[in-house]
């Protein structure tokens, strides 16, 4: 996982020719930790700190009114102006693309970024929207009824990705 993130950090720097106008925004919950790690890695390479925010997309979900049960609402905390920055959205798993659609709407309500790019640790396919990641840690082909779970040290687990079969309700 560390190698994949390292490569993504380098790719971000290469694509954006440095990081002076780049902001990282992690999507709650997994994406936030990955964004923090990317910031560290980028900081180590470039000797500079990029700005970092956290985005909760609950209010922008397209299944809010049809979903069973209450999604847990968390805070959005983006302590900088996103306008004219190149914002890199960070998430753990890219699946249907609906989360990313919600995140982009959420971002647009906060300002007008110069660009939005997408970095994900795992791309598991099955897109339902025309969305593609700019930076991918690893492509893992899956069946629809499988689920990918990313475990992180920040959540008290050893870093790993596992595929769970037949977990029922997909995300």
């Amino acid at each position: 996982m560390t190698r994949a993130l390292n490569r993504i950090a380098h790719e971000i720097l290469e694509r954006n020719k440095g990081c002076h106008d780049v902001g990282l925004v992690g999507i709650r919950t997994g994406g936030v930790y990955l964004a923090q790690r990317l910031r560290q890695l980028i900081g180590r390479i470039e000797q500079t700190e990029v700005v970092l925010g956290e985005l909760d997309i609950t209010l922008y979900r397209d299944d809010l009114s049809i979903r069973k049960g209450q999604p847990v609402l968390k805070k959005t905390d983006i302590p900088f102006h996103i306008s004219d920055l190149k914002i890199i959205l960070v998430d753990d798993v890219l699946f249907t693309g609906r989360t990313i659609r919600a995140a982009m709407d959420g971002l647009m309500d906060l300002g007008r970024p110069a660009e939005i790019q997408l970095a994900v640790l795992i791309d598991r396919g099955h897109r339902q929207l025309p969305i593609r990641a700019n930076y991918v840690g690893k492509n893992i082909p899956t069946a629809k009824d499988e689920n990918i779970q990313v475990f992180l040290e920040e959540l008290g687990e050893a870093d790993r990705v596992s595929k769970l079969v037949n977990v029922g309700d997909a995300r």
Partner: peptide, 20 residues
């Protein structure tokens, strides 16, 4: 109260609206 705390930030935005 926890839900309210999540919404405090919305009233401070330039566009004070979420589509919930």
């Amino acid at each position: 109260l926890e839900a309210a705390e999540s919404f405090q930030e919305v009233s401070g935005r330039e566009i004070k609206k979420v589509p919930a």
